[in-house]
Every structure is written in C-alpha cells, then in structure tokens.
Nucleic acid binder design. Structure first.
Lengths: 329, 329
DNA sequence: ATTTGTTTTGTAATCGATTACATGACTATA
DNA sequence: TATAGTCATGTAATCGATTACAAAACAAAT
C-alpha cells in the first residue's frame, strides 16, 4: 500500500497538498488537483485510517455490544442501528461479549483508545459500573436493558406495562391460573416484567403462587422446555403461561406438544419479543412486540448526537400485543 | 485519557522506559518499574491502540464478514471463530454486509488500513474479484461459501455429496417424487446441492421435473412458505422435499400445516444446516448438519496461520444427516 | 517598477506509541 | 585507580496522516 508520501512524490507536490485534495476543504488549483488525483489512481492509494484517526481522534466507528448473536431478538434492532449509522457516515462493529468480562474489556478499550467513537450496549450482563465510568469521558447509550440510575441515556420500553398487558390479555380470555416463565431476576427487565405480572393478577384478585413462577438461567429454547416440564409436574397446573421471551415460550410450546397438550385449549401461551420464528411455530405464538427497528434507529441517533456534544434524553417506546393462535380459540 | 508522555513525566522517566514496562520485553530495574506502574495506575492510563498499531502495523483484530445476522446458520461458526481467535490473543469484529457492496468496501478498507489483520468471509454475495485482489496483500479465508479457483483458501463441506445423501435418504424411505427448494443458483453451494440432488435421482432412475425445482431469492422463512405454496398448486405434487436451508424447510412445514398436510405422511421434508430452531418445529426437522463450530475453529486457525506467513490449505469437512420426525413415520 | 492583496503551495509540528542506538551508571577485576 | 563489561535509561527517528503558519507565486493597481 502506497502512503501519502509516495503520492506526493509521484505528483510532484507536498504531502500537505495531497491531504488537501483528499479532504477537499482548502483551495487547490485545478491543475495540481488533477496531478494528485492521477497519482492516487496510479498508485492505487487509499488513506490510512490509522494515521488519520490518530491525528483526528475520530474513527467514525460505533460499537454495538450484544451478549450473543444467537438471540434473534437483536436482529432488527441492529438493522435500525446500522441504517441510521450509515446515514450519518458512521459504521458499526458488532461485538459479541458472551457475557464474558474480559471480552467486554477489550471493547471498552477500543473506545478508550479512539478506535471507536461510541458504544450502544444491549448486553444485560454488562458491568454497569465500568460502563458508567467509561461514560464519563465517552458516548454510551443503553438499548433495551438499562440502568435505573439514569446516568447513561437509554432507549427501551415500559416492561412493567407490557407484561401487565400480556397477562391481562390472558385473564380476559378466561384464565385464572397464570404461570410466569421468567429469566434471572438479576436483570432489570425480568424484575419489571414480574412486577407487571403481579399487578395484573392483583387487579383481578387472582392468586399469586410461588410454584407458578419459574426462573431460567438462560434464554435458550431448552430453558423453555425445562420450565414447562416443571410446570406440568405440578399438582395444580396453570391454565396459561406468560414467558418473558419468545425463545422460552417456543420451548414451552414444544414441551406441550411432546406431552400431547394443545395451545390454547389446554394451556394458553404468550411470549415476548415477536422474533420472526414466533410466526412459524404451530400454533403461532401470541407475543408482545417491541418496536425493534425503531429502537435501533433511536439508539443510534442518540449516540451520534451524544458524540457531537448534544446530550441525549432517555426514552421509552411503545409496545404492542400481537395476538396469534396460542391464545386464540 | 492520559498518554505515555504524562505517565513518563509523572514517573520521572522517559517514554521509552514506560514503553518497556508496558511491553515488558527489555530490562527495567525493579524500582523504576514500580514507579512507572504506580504512575500508570494513578493516571488510569491505557495505551492507545491507534499509536501502537500505527507503529507496529498490527491490530490483532480479525474481521468476520456475514451477509446478515438474521440467519442463525452463522451463530455456531462465529462461536468457533471467536473462541479460537481469543485463544491466540486475537479479537473478532462481526461485519454485517447486508450484501451491500459499499459496506463491503468499508470493511475491505479497514484491512488495507491495518485496522484489522485479516478477514474471514462467509458472505456468498461478496465481490469475489475484489476479495481476490485484497488477498494479494492480506490474509483472507473463505468459510462455507468459496471460490472454485482456489486462489483464496477455504473451509467448507462437500455440498454435492451432502445433497446427494439427503435426497438418497428420501428415496430410501420410499419417495419417488422429490422436489428441490433451492436458493439462487448464482451461488456455488446452490449449484453444488442441485447437482447432488440430480445425481441421486439419476442413480435411481427417478424423473427430474422442472416444476419440482423452485428457486428462492432469499433464505427467509417466508421464502419457504412461498415455495411450498407453489409446489402445492401443481397438478402432480411431490411426495418429498429437499430444501437447501432449514429456514426454507421450516417455512415449507409451516405452509403444509396451514394446508392441513402432515410431514412425513403427506410430504416428507429434509432441510440443511441444523439450526437450533430445526429441533423446535412440529414435526422436528430432518436436516443435514454441517460441523459449524469446527468450521469456525478451522477457519480461524487457517487465518491466524496465514497472518503469520504460513500459507493455509483449503479443506472440506464432513457433514452428517440428522434424521428427525419430518422423515420418520 | 513597486506595492498590495489574493491564491496556491510548502514546511514542520503534531497525534501516541515503539525501538535502534547512544549514553550513563554501576560492578567487578586487575 | 583504571578499565572493561553489564545493565538501565534516555534521545530521537519512525509509522501516516492533518493543519497552523510561512512563503512563494501571481495579479492588479498605482
């Protein structure tokens, strides 16, 4: 790869002039410009981001932290982020942390080292303290999972309200014995959704039974299968289930199938996220849709604003209950 | 962020000494080392990758090009790549191209500019000519989709043989009218799988009928739905279907469900890839498994070798037919 | 021909690290 | 005490760009 020196030499000008042509901000005479452009073409030259970034302290790269790409929930959000970023001449790099603090650190360092201009974190397992520290000197936005202290701006939905709506729907169609398949309640969203579940039950004077709340460690299909297996072992079985993730709900449906049970007749099921697969199951899955694409766009816009010194305001977007076969008679 | 100068000043030494402590390769007296380490801690200093990379022409970052993260096929491969990379002190950045040449270009430039040390491309829509050009001066490995010219080393499976096995399985369980749901045949893997399909039919003297071959433009669930819808409209319907991707096969199963048809009794279905969903459908899906994790590990190992000047040899890994309910009576 | 003003181009410092080479400090030996 | 040898540290060039400032080139006006 040729560098700016060689281009300058070939064109018979100084490096400053080459740089001026490159950034076409300052005045260069048409004839010189032509010479330089020819030299660039002949040498197949492309400016080094490294040199440029070092000088400019800007990389126009945004980091997107996700725990795992295997969760389809992130797909549409990332699309929104990417399209918005590109519209502002930024690019994104996807960083899969696998909830591993060391990997997290590597990505944090990229920001500290000016290899990236900002971060959108969607990782609920992120080390929030470190992130807040990083946010003192860098632009960070939380997406989906957030921190109640509101030190770092976030975009999310009202999880409590969304869960409340989902459970109320199950009650409205005649269910009184409603179970909750929740994830680990160390996550804010899990606590919020549980709270919405409890509020709906309380409002209709329905019993809140410990054995109808099952907490999983992960969000894989298999965790849903396992959860349902436990619930089906109970003496008094629930007549409906609210799962805080479609992957869990789909696992639950699978286990029902295996036991010869049908949704919604035997047990009605509601999921959360509206991943694309939720429309492919049999029966199709009722679920709470988050405006994922919009969330991505919003997060990216907030981040880019924040990089350009306009502080960002946290925002909660609307959710929507999508009723499908798993709760329709 | 403090820089190396400030650390040097605070510790009362030269920048060279600080650098020596950082890279602990050269001799530094214990007392000086301590002073420097204290200064580093006090200033919360972390070395700038930008400065370091510029000087060393090394970033220890690997780029992984995928067309879209929404295809679950890539999940396990990426895991393999990531684990192998980390074991060699490399990190990976996921680059979603969305089959967009401009985005592709951005990532190619990162390599040219030493922002990344190498590339693993899994994008079948990649501009192969540009990639070959890039490969002249940089380390590139193809994974899954490859180029027959073998200019760029690749790791993949024997697609023709895999398809042949899948179709032979359908024949063995008694099917004579076998349809193919293929993707766009501009892709090598699509042509190879079709060829395996044809070979199996020919071997058993079964008819090869044009109307039983359906080509989709994408690999989404919906494309599978669409394909099945067309096949069910035919006067002479197939009794079995081989789809070149699980997503297509799942869409096909969905459409069968909607039409009240059951697999395998009405139509048997075989997919390809063994994505995690394929075990969650009803019925569960028979599919050809690629050794995805191993493919990822192999690709990463090849790339890292290639970066360190050992040239890599292309390799084909073994596939495996996983028989599930969609072909089991 | 000289002055003034404008346009174009070049020189050199800078960003933050690494490292070859030079130099200084110290030790051991005669 | 002088000398060689070893170990520790500093000086300055370097990677590839950008840009403030200086200088040169040119044009227009007197």
């Amino acid at each position: 790869m040729a560098n700016i020196q060689e281009v300058a030499q070939k064109a018979g000008v100084s490096v400053a002039t080459v740089s001026r042509v490159l950034n076409n901000n300052s005045t260069v005479s048409p004839s010189t410009r032509l010479k330089v452009e020819n030299a660039i073409k002949e040498l197949n030259y492309e400016p080094s981001m490294l040199g440029r970034n070092l000088r400019n302290s800007e990389s126009r790269l945004l980091l997107v932290l996700i725990p795992s790409i295997s969760n389809p929930f992130y797909t549409e959000i990332i699309n929104g982020i990417q399209n918005t970023a590109i519209a502002h001449q930024y690019n994104i790099l996807l960083c899969e942390t696998n909830s591993n603090p060391e990997r997290e650190n590597i990505y944090f360092n990229m920001v500290k080292n000016k290899l990236a201009d900002g971060v959108i974190s969607m990782d609920p397992t992120v080390n929030m303290q470190k992130l807040i520290e990083l946010a003192e000197n860098h632009s960070i936005i939380l997406c989906s999972e957030y921190d109640e202290s509101n030190v770092i701006p976030y975009v999310s939905i009202d999880n409590e309200m969304a869960a409340y709506h989902a459970v109320k729907h199950l009650i409205k169609i005649g269910n009184e014995k409603i179970a909750l398949i929740n994830s680990d309640e160390k996550f804010l969203y899990a606590r919020q959704r549980r709270s919405g579940y409890e509020r709906a039950l309380a409002e209709f004077n329905l019993p809140l039974r410990k054995e109808w709340i099952y907490n999983t460690t992960q969000l894989d299909f298999q965790d849903g299968v396992q959860a349902m297996r436990m619930l089906l072992k109970l003496k008094e079985k629930p007549s409906a289930i609210f799962a805080v993730s479609d992957t869990l709900a789909i696992g639950a449906l699978k286990e029902m199938n295996a036991s010869g049970l049908k949704a919604p007749d035997d047990i009605a099921v509601v999921g959360f996220d509206n991943i694309s697969f939720s429309n492919m199951t049999n029966p199709t899955l009722t679920t709470v849709a988050q405006p994922m694409y919009k969330m991505g766009c919003t997060a990216a816009t907030m981040l880019i604003n924040s990089i350009h010194e306009n502080k960002a305001e946290s925002i909660l977007l609307d959710h929507e209950l999508i009723i499908r076969e798993s709760t329709m008679g």
